[in-house]
């Protein structure tokens, strides 16, 4: 047993403020990741002749995309506020960078999904504009796939670029946890939506994503020091335990019974749920770490006590 760290605070009050964000933000991260992974699957499906995978991927991306916009606008309060973000581009703001990534990826992925819709219509009735959409569907799908990975990765930077102890201290591994989680979610959706004969890449992506997420998360915890504690406590702890269980279950199911449609569906659903839990778990852990002065004060105090205050060195 490591003895409880002793530290001083002002009446036990937090030093930093927890973000004012609610469930919108982890949901946003989940949907963004799922959309990004799905665009990749869709493009692959397109290239490798798996139309079901392509179609499912493009639609999932559209659903994810719509959900991200919905959660974002809900968080901001009204749609107009999103536009304020487009008045500038700031590299120092991961949210600004993310806005532009999303603003690039979103319409293209949207077009790809639209093309899929158009292609489902009876051919003779399609107006000229729709035919144009259909024509750019394929390149749009490829461009969407190329712009998708940043959508999955930037949300890690978004969280880490804060003074929230359990987010900031996680910045080295969190992008890997998040892309892993995105891949697992997208793969999981693919396994749910696509017949097993076309879902091979989705299974492999799901398993690979799950493994990456689990490994990266483990490494992350060991590099976070005391700020890893909240990942095991309270609400965050419950989310993270659920995440781990669902992800492992889903990955094993995919590996062992992925070719069976029911097993694939259950495993896929477990991976999607696992990804949701990961996002909420990481989110909550950060919020909890901000509300307890211990996670702000102790690491900083330890630096000072080691005689290593943060100083600029040329």
């Amino acid at each position: 047993m490591v003895p409880e760290a002793t530290f001083t605070s002002y009446s036990g009050l937090p030093v930093v403020k927890a973000s004012p964000w609610k469930a919108d933000i982890p949901a946003y991260m989940f949907f963004g990741g799922m959309a990004a992974g799905s665009s990749l699957l869709a493009a692959g499906g397109d290239l490798t002749g798996r139309p079901a995978l392509r179609r499912a991927g493009r639609f999932t991306a559209l659903i994810g995309l719509s959900a991200t916009m919905a959660t974002l606008v809900h968080d901001l309060g009204r749609p107009g506020r999103f536009l304020n973000m487009l008045r500038t581009a700031k590299l120092t703001s991961p949210m600004s960078v993310g806005t532009w990534i999303l603003s690039t990826y979103g319409p293209i992925a949207g077009v790809a999904a639209a093309a899929e819709l158009v292609d489902m219509l009876p051919e003779r009735r399609v107006p000229a504009l729709f035919r144009l959409v259909s024509a750019v569907g394929r390149p749009a799908g490829f461009v969407a796939a190329l712009t998708a990975p940043p959508v999955a990765a930037y949300t890690a930077v978004l969280l880490s670029d804060t003074a929230t102890p359990s987010w900031h201290e996680a910045y080295r591994e969190l992008p890997f946890v998040f892309v892993g989680s995105a891949a697992a979610a997208a793969g999981g959706v693919g396994m749910l939506a696509v017949p097993p004969d076309q879902a091979g890449p989705a299974r492999r992506m799901a398993v690979g994503g799950a493994v990456l997420e689990l490994v990266a998360e483990q490494r992350m915890e060991s590099s976070m020091g005391i700020t890893a504690e909240p990942l095991h406590q309270g609400k965050a702890g419950r989310w993270m335990r659920a995440s781990k269980a669902l992800t492992i279950t889903g990955a094993l199911g995919s590996l062992l019974g992925g070719r069976s449609r029911p097993v694939a569906a259950v495993s896929g659903a477990a991976l999607v749920a696992g990804s949701v839990c990961t996002r909420f778990g990481i989110f909550e852990a950060g919020q909890q770490s901000a509300r307890d002065p211990k996670y702000t004060v102790v690491p900083q105090r330890e630096r000072l006590d080691r005689g290593e205050p943060t100083r600029y060195r040329g």
């Binding site: 998708a148 990975p149 940043p150 999955a152 990765a153 890690a156 080295r172 591994e173 892309v179 891949a183």
Partner: peptide, 14 residues
């Protein structure tokens, strides 16, 4: 780190 992770996702998909 995020760029590397994004690359890993792309690579993983491929």
């Amino acid at each position: 780190r995020a760029v590397v992770a994004a690359g890993a996702l792309l690579l993983g998909a491929v």
